[in-house]
């Protein structure tokens, strides 16, 4: 199933009477040059619609994280075209990029990176506050319930197990109902059972909020759950 070229090349138009949703992620001729190392990465073109899921496979140093940071608007200064929700990221002002990150994009980081000073629920609510989105209590409750976090709401995240913390991180990524969900090596430290659990959870939750899910990983176990993938090769 893996190809290293265009994955979903269909343009957003009416085809067989069905309106195709616009692309949530659209990558064309994307290149990035590391400012200090002076080597250039060339990324394969691909597009992703709402509800679609894609693995970004590759060994360490192949540029998976760089790709993810570019899509997430954490890195700028690329050449070529990179559109998220129809907006060319390099044309956005700093403030609009901040807003896009907060409201349209959800991140699940490799090491969760929760704010240790806060409780589980506060971590989730912080994402609303920082993105400038009003808290939707119903949605928050639903998320925490779905992720089996009801009884850990008021617990400091430092007291949570790794699995619980990861579920908090997923809740935080989804609380603003993003259109794009980015995950960086979400399963690298997990055994097979937990790996399966986490990837199912990510996949289900992304489908529920109709977000395009992009997972950067070197973990080939994930192919079982998400067959669509592109492979990055080490330059």
């Amino acid at each position: 199933m893996c190809t290293s070229g265009l994955v979903f090349a269909a343009p957003p138009e009416v085809c067989n009477g069905v309106l195709f949703l616009p692309f949530m992620i659209e990558v064309r001729n994307l290149r990035y040059t590391y400012p200090r190392r002076n080597n250039t990465l060339q990324f394969p073109d691909f597009t992703l619609q709402r509800g679609e899921q894609l693995l970004l496979l590759g060994q360490s140093g192949s540029g998976k994280t760089t790709m993810l940071h570019l899509v997430g608007g954490l890195l700028r200064g690329y050449s070529g075209s990179l559109k998220v929700d129809g907006a060319e990221l390099k044309d956005l002002s700093e403030a609009r990029l901040d807003r896009l990150r907060g409201q349209k994009i959800g991140f699940v980081f490799q090491r969760n990176h929760l704010i240790a000073a806060l409780t589980a629920e506060q971590n989730v609510k912080l994402a609303c506050y920082l993105a400038g989105v009003d808290e939707n209590k119903q949605h928050n409750d639903h998320l925490l319930h779905e992720l089996h976090l009801d009884m850990y709401r008021k617990v400091r995240v430092t007291e949570l197990s790794h699995g619980q913390a990861q579920r908090v991180a997923i809740a935080r990524a989804l609380v603003n109902k993003p259109v794009v969900l980015l995950a960086d090596e979400p399963t690298s430290a997990l055994d097979d059972v937990n790996c399966g659990r986490v990837i199912r959870l990510l996949s289900e939750m992304a489908r529920e909020v109709q977000a395009a899910l992009l997972i950067a990983t070197h973990d080939t176990r994930l192919k079982e759950a998400i067959p669509n993938c592109i492979e990055l090769t080490t330059p």
Partner: peptide, 16 residues
């Protein structure tokens, strides 16, 4: 440092 970077990733402006 991570907290600050994560908060930026969550949409926090530099000013915040």
């Amino acid at each position: 440092r991570y907290d600050l970077a994560v908060m930026r990733a969550l949409g926090a402006t530099r000013l915040k």
